[in-house]
Design a protein around this nucleic acid. Structure first.
Lengths: 234, 234
DNA sequence: CCTTCATGCTTTGTATACATTATCAAGCGG
DNA sequence: CCGCTTGATAATGTATACAAAGCATGAAGG
């Protein structure tokens, strides 16, 4: 009884996809790591076919880069790259709260408040992992409230590349009070269906995230250069 | 010497992808058509493997729907679906012109004006195919001017589903004067780097498109019902 | 000593064979 | 006559075998 979940019922390619995605997001597979089909298939106990399909999915989400006849590697995280994603996400997050203002149902509002409270409880634990999880769920409630399926899937895939920085972002943000305040403001604006206020709050929320992530990337880069100086590379 | 282009050098999966995409966009494969791997492979003279990979790509772009263990079919176009896409595209198109206002180079402006003039010349021909092509190129200039790679690829894939309606949209829009006027306004606003004006113009541009496409979908649906009444189905 | 070409190994691209599952129809039973 | 079960069939899921291309290594020649 391996898997211990319903994992046994979903196709191998999805199972492989989940495993690879996790490995990338947690940093087990660092940027630049080559993804070789036979090797991975060997490691995961499946053939090349599901591996290939999983890698294709990851490519479309921007987590891996493929070069024809050369192979796939974990996508490099550049400042430009992340900046591009965040620019788009800002526009879409603002759209999300706007649509949520217009369309959220009373049940949705209840759910949203619950997610907000949940987040505050998570913050109290001071455990990055729990906080990150609660944060994702909070945003998912808003996104779902838009009722726009395309928007939902886009937000999902644009969030992925940043999860590699989520823990640091959570840890970093000096005192989580800011996050809590921002969430409260968003909830209150959506509840009052105040579109301008909600838009502004969502925009600032992303801007803060951007600042934190960009700083993190710059730190990583410096660390890397230092490592190179000391011959730690290779 | 088939292909007559460099098609012979790109992987089979990409070649298959292009062919299938075209067949869907031109309506040769109507919505609901099942895409069976063996059949397609037989028809195109390749094995199932490249077919599968091409279908996966099309799925990620929303042109086909896959159901595990059941197969793939050409995505149904519903009003909701198209409305969802257009809602997102409005936000992204507005973002495009905003960024273009900030970042476009003098060469970009020259190129933009050229694209605008080109479009007006295309309109003069009164040939839907030429007009549609010029319209796409005009928008591509703006999108490229943003310098945001992620935005570029997103716009690309969100435009695809609507190409199925592009010809009708072009034909439909009562006198193309409106389109010409809108393009002129956008160009002028970008040139002056007037973000509010550019945003408004881009927003209206999409709203017009939305109206036209929604109308078209409703007409299609009625036609379909009529066909059913007369027993034309199946 | 450097450059270049050839050769072999590694890896991806493609085809095909085998396994599994969903669908449909026919037959049996109520 | 209706419904359930069961089996045949056809399609997808997965594995593997074969082809071709890229890259590195090394040897030979200048």
């Amino acid at each position: 009884m391996p898997g211990t979940k319903e994992e046994d019922f979903l196709p191998l390619r999805d199972s492989v996809y989940n495993k690879l995605r996790n490995a990338i997001l947690t940093g087990e597979f660092p940027p630049g790591e080559r993804l070789m089909e036979v090797h991975l298939g060997d490691k995961l106990g499946v053939s090349r076919t599901p591996i290939r399909e999983a890698i294709r999915m990851l490519e479309l989400e921007g987590l891996v880069t493929m070069i024809p006849r050369k192979g796939a590697m974990v996508a490099q995280i550049t400042e430009k790259n992340m900046s591009d994603v965040l620019e788009v996400r800002k526009a879409l997050d603002v759209l999300c709260v706007q649509l949520a203002c217009e369309r959220i149902t009373p049940e949705g509002i209840t759910e949203l408040k619950k997610a907000r409270d949940n987040f505050e409880k998570a913050v109290a634990t001071n455990d990055s992992r729990i906080i990150a999880q609660a944060d994702v769920e909070f945003h998912n409630v808003i996104i779902k409230a838009t009722g726009n399926d395309r928007l939902i899937s886009l937000e999902d895939s644009l969030s992925l590349p940043m999860y590699r920085y989520r823990y640091e972002y959570i840890k970093d943000s000096a005192g989580h009070d800011n996050l809590v305040k921002e969430h409260r403001r968003i909830v209150s604006a959506i509840e009052k269906r105040n579109i301008p206020d909600a838009s502004e709050a969502a925009g600032e929320h992303i801007d803060n995230q951007r600042r934190s992530i960009i700083r993190q990337i710059r730190m990583d880069r410096e660390e890397e250069s230092l490592g190179a100086l000391y011959g730690k590379h290779r």
